[in-house]
């Protein structure tokens, strides 16, 4: 019986694995993005960078008020930028998905929440998460429909 229950979920597990693991082609032709970004208490401008996989990003960072930092999650890039002295960062967007960049130098009250986003398309991470949500919910509902709990209806009020 338990085996039947587990086996009934096999198609959903299989589908989830396909969504999670299937390699998809990343065929967009790489370009170079030249961006001037300002860091100002407590936001980056532009707040969101959208690029494609393989693109080169040439970033000029400028601090307009106090000393700020720039740390890019997942890429491990970090630099410090002082007012009046711009910093250049260059990297290839070789990891798809959304990565936060954040101020890494204590710059004032909202410093921990001075955050921006780098979105490297195609954002398969998000697409896979959405797919997984659909499959896992479908699997849960299928399981509940096919194998309802055996507990008695203690509080039936209908």
């Amino acid at each position: 019986m338990k085996r039947d229950r587990l086996l009934s979920l096999a198609p959903f597990v299989g589908l989830a694995l396909v969504i999670l693991l299937i390699p998809l082609p990343l065929t967009v032709k790489p370009v170079t993005h030249v961006v001037t970004m300002t860091a100002d208490q407590f936001a980056f401008d532009p707040p969101v960078l959208r690029v494609n996989y393989g693109d080169r990003v040439r970033l000029t960072l400028q601090a307009t008020d106090v000393v700020h930092g720039f740390y890019l999650d997942g890429y491990g890039i970090e630099t410090r930028v002082e007012p009046g002295i711009s910093q250049q960062i260059e990297f290839v967007a070789d990891q798809i998905g959304k990565y936060r960049f954040r101020c890494s130098v204590s710059c004032g009250t909202l410093h921990p929440f001075m955050i921006g986003e780098l979105v490297v398309n195609p954002n398969l991470t998000f697409a896979r998460a959405v797919g997984l949500t659909a499959v896992i919910l479908a699997g849960t509902l299928f399981y509940l429909r096919r194998f309802p709990p055996r507990e008695p209806r203690e509080h039936t009020t209908a």
């Binding site: 997984l132 949500t133 849960t140 509940l144 309802p148 709990p149 507990e151 203690e154 209908a158």
Partner: peptide, 27 residues
Amino acid sequence: LLVGLVFSSIIAYRIARQHTRTDVQAW
């Protein structure tokens, strides 16, 4: 979040069973 979705959906179904006559209605 996926664990939360499954957990909450199961709880919703079991709450529904407290108010319905059949499992199909609950579902």
